[in-house]
Structures are given as structure tokens and as C-alpha cells.
Computed example of a mutant assay.
Amino acid sequence: MHTDRQTPEAQRSVADAPPDNWVDRHAPESWRPWLRLSRADRPIGTWLLLLPCWWGIGLAMIADRPTWRDLWIAVACALGAILMRGAGCTWNDISDRDFDAQVSRTRSRPIPSGQVSVLGAYLWLVAQCLLGFVILLTLGSAAIWLGVASLALVAIYPFAKRFTWWPQVFLGLAFNWGVLLAWAAHLGGIALAPVLAYLAGIAWTIFYDTIYAHQDAEDDALIGVKSTARLFGADSKRWLARFGGAAVVLLALSLLAAGAQGIALWLGLAGIAGFALHLLWQLSRFDMNDSAGCLRLFRANRNSGLIVALFLALAGLV
């Protein structure tokens, strides 16, 4: 196990954080380890948790009608995504601290580098969860129960890589739950449309997180951590195409299930087409042996998800 702790580099930043991120540049020095533990220096994960929530709001507005409350649901989802992504990452780092210490990309994270104690991380986890729960209480009983239920998925995910070659499925189950929650916050229950969008999000997560996991494939093989990147290996591009295609088809079906017609239908389909083109662009540039390129493509999925969210919102407003 790697035992070097508190190296100057580890104190400054985490290895895979974007250069000149706002935490390293502007946050008070005493806050930085805690913000790094929540991945505030790497906001892409917050986007990937938030965007399915916004898909759910857009679909709900198509199925029903937009109201001013939808604006608060969108803001509450954004705040909740920040807090619960931070809580999820904190739990992940507590659970994976021994693995992280053995992987070059992750040994500079706050716990294995010694910037944050395990006890401190647990306290930080509880604080984030409590704040997230306060926000959840404003979204109605159906959304509250769904939010509480999601904690089981969050708790299981860090351990999935130890017992299955498909941990990306567990990540997808957790990260796309917001589709169901946001729909329920608007309509008070669940229907076929958000379930189809949820499945689309899971397929999308397998797509982008397999790309992400190729950064660590060699280290993961050495320490026995499983992933779809290792499972698919040299055939990864073909598998990525399959899951990307599944995400596109399921999103189109969710749009139809929401009852989109006329201009709303065409706007929704335009967004899904843009999403499909973005995934094709990623596939054209995917190289499993280029770690830096894999990280860039992973981060680019903010844009593919935003395309869908924007066009669904427009479709819901017409």
C-alpha cells in the first residue's frame, strides 16, 4: 500500500482535478480539503447527477403543464445535486480509502493523502446529508420517499466494484434517480415516461463511466477492482455504441410516453438527436489507451446531457 502522506502536491490539489479549478484558486485554505472531499474541484459529477433531474422536470412539463413551482424544483435539484454528490463522494472515499491509496490517480485525494481524517469525513458526510434532507422536504411526499430510497443505492455503489464487473450499472441506478424524483415532485407519482428516461440515463452512465474507468484499468487490474472498462477491454468502442444507442432510443420512447405532440415532440426529438450526435462525436475520438483523452470525453458529457435538458424544457414550455 502507498504510505506517503501529506506531500506538497497532495496538499495543493487532487491529481485529476481540472487545472486552476475554483477550489484551489479561491476557496479559503482551511476549506479546501473538505471541498475536495466533496469533489467541488471537479464539478462534472454534480452536472451528471443534476441533468437527469432536469430531464424529469422537462418530461413532467410536457405531460402536464409548466408551473412556477417547476422553477423551485429545478433550483432545489441543483442544490440537492451539489450536496448529495458531495455526500456520495465522501462516502465513496471513506469506503475506498485503502484502494485509493494504491492508485496513482486517486492517492492524492483528501483521505489517503492525510488531509482529512476518517472521523472528520464521517461528520462531513452527515452534515451534507442533513442539508440535502432539508431541501428534499420542500418537494412533496412522493419525492421525499424517493429521495430516502435513493440512499440505499448510494450506500451500495462503492462496494459494487468488489463483487461485479458492472459497477457502472450501480452508478447509473444512483445517478439517474433524479429523473424519478423530479417527475414526482411535479406530478406526485411515477409513470412510464420517467421510468424510460431513468433506463436511458443508466445506459448513458455506463457509456460515460466506462470511458472514465479506462483511466484506471491497469491499476484496477493490479489491485483486483472490477469495471466495465476491464470487462469490455479492446471491444469497448462497440459496447459504448450499444449503450449510447440504447440511451437514445429510450429517451425517444420516454418523450412519446410523456405525450409529446406537435412542436413539443419535434423540439424533444431535436434534443435527442443532438444528444445522439454528441455521443457519436465522443466515439469518434475515443482511445482507450489515452487517459487524458478519456477524461476529456468523460467531462464532455455535461454538454450531451445539457442538450437534452434544454430541448425538453423548451418542449415543456411551448
Rank of each mutant, 00 (worst) to 15 (best):
G316P: 01
L312S: 03
E29C: 03
M61K: 07
S95R: 04
W34S: 12
G140H: 10
L153V: 03
L137F: 07
G132V: 07
S284L: 09
A17H: 04
G172I: 01
T106A: 09
C129R: 04
L196P: 10
L125N: 09
V154M: 08
T3W: 13
L312F: 15
F159A: 13
L267N: 07
W145D: 00
A276Q: 07
E218Y: 11
A273Y: 07
G140A: 03
L137H: 09
D20I: 00
T210C: 09
S108C: 07
R5H: 11
L51S: 01
I206P: 02
S236M: 02
A292F: 08
K161M: 04
G147S: 01
L51D: 10
L136Q: 07
W177D: 03
A185C: 04
D41N: 12
I211W: 12
V195W: 08
A121N: 05
I94Y: 10
G316L: 05
D41Y: 04
G147Y: 13
A200L: 10
R69T: 08
D235Q: 11
A229Q: 02
L280S: 11
D235C: 03
A313K: 06
W34Q: 05
G147P: 10
A15G: 01
G114A: 09
S227Y: 09
S38G: 15
S150W: 02
F286A: 00
G262N: 03
V225Y: 05
I190D: 15
Q102W: 09
A276P: 06
P18A: 03
R25K: 15
A81H: 10
L119E: 13
I272A: 00
I144L: 12
A121V: 08
F159N: 07
A234L: 10
A121L: 04
A191D: 13
H214Y: 15
R12I: 00
V225F: 11
A313R: 08
I307R: 11
A76H: 04
A10S: 15
I44D: 13
E218Q: 14
T3C: 09
T90I: 06
L199H: 07
S13L: 10
L267R: 08
G259D: 05
W54I: 05
F275M: 01
D290C: 00
D96F: 03
A182C: 05
A182M: 12
S291L: 15
A221V: 02
A309Q: 07
A300Q: 13
S150T: 09
